[in-house]
């Protein structure tokens, strides 16, 4: 009850130094379906589990992995509508960068901008924090692949392999065992799917997951894999 007395406004600290709303946002993320990112030597991959609530939903219309710019892609765990707002802002920032500097926005810059947006929603009045964590992949300024996690608090980290969502802690220990420094992109995609399978109820199908890649045999541009391509990795 003490804590809830300070949850009327997220911009107010509780006496213990906590911002209750941000903790709640992390709880929303922890309830979301799992997403994974793995960086390889020659590229980087995103894999996301898709929860379809009903057989009647058109499965192709549910999108978890999205393109941010030519060389960058993003996925999330948590609230879908909040993700859509961040995606829109991320795309706008990346495009503004491209127009201004005449080169594609590096993935670290995209992530920093998204983290900036998310931080502003922890300090502004009349708003709530975003209920999702992001995994951003893409090309760095030096051409190397990059993977970043951005949290509702506004903090962001570069990872070799990262996961967010309800299966994150299990997936992380699984990835820590599986990850190698000299991983190729194809191996990384396999590991990502194996990690998803670990926390998935039943067998993973092309309808129940999504993959986004950049680098390796897919070329440096970001691309979402088709159902047929995912099926090849699953069989």
């Amino acid at each position: 009850m003490q804590e809830s007395a300070y949850s009327f406004s997220l911009t107010t600290f509780s006496p213990s130094g906590k911002l209750g709303q941000i903790d709640h946002a992390f709880a929303a993320v922890a309830g979301g379906s799992t997403s994974i990112g793995i960086k390889a030597v020659d590229g980087v991959v995103l894999a996301a589990e898709k929860k379809i609530r009903s057989e009647l939903i058109e499965k192709e219309s549910v999108i978890k992995v999205a393109k941010l710019s030519k060389y960058c892609g993003v996925t999330y765990a948590g609230m879908g509508p909040d993700f859509r707002v961040l995606l829109k802002e991320g795309r706008k920032d990346a495009e503004a960068y491209r127009v201004r500097f005449g080169e594609e926005c590096p993935v670290s810059e995209v992530s920093r901008n998204l983290a900036q947006v998310m931080q502003e929603y922890t300090q502004s009045g009349g708003v709530r924090p975003f209920g999702c964590s992001l995994l951003v992949i893409g090309k760095e300024a030096d051409g190397k692949p990059g993977l970043f996690q951005v949290d509702p608090s506004g903090s962001f980290f570069a990872w070799k392999a990262a996961c967010v969502g309800h299966g994150a802690s299990d997936a992380q220990s699984y990835l820590e065992k599986r990850y190698e420094e000299k991983l190729g992109l194809d191996d990384a995609i396999h590991i990502a799917l194996l990690t998803l399978q670990e926390s998935f109820d039943g067998k993973l199908t092309p309808e129940s997951c999504e993959i986004g890649v950049c680098g390796g045999k897919y070329g440096s541009e970001f691309r979402r894999l088709t159902m047929e391509e995912i099926d090849e990795y699953l069989s």
């Binding site: 201004r100 500097f101 005449g102 080169e103 300024a141």
Partner: peptide, 18 residues
Amino acid sequence: LKQERSMPPHVFSKLVST
């Protein structure tokens, strides 16, 4: 400061232009 790299000349040229 933001990107911890020097701005390449073609990027600077575009920046001047915009």
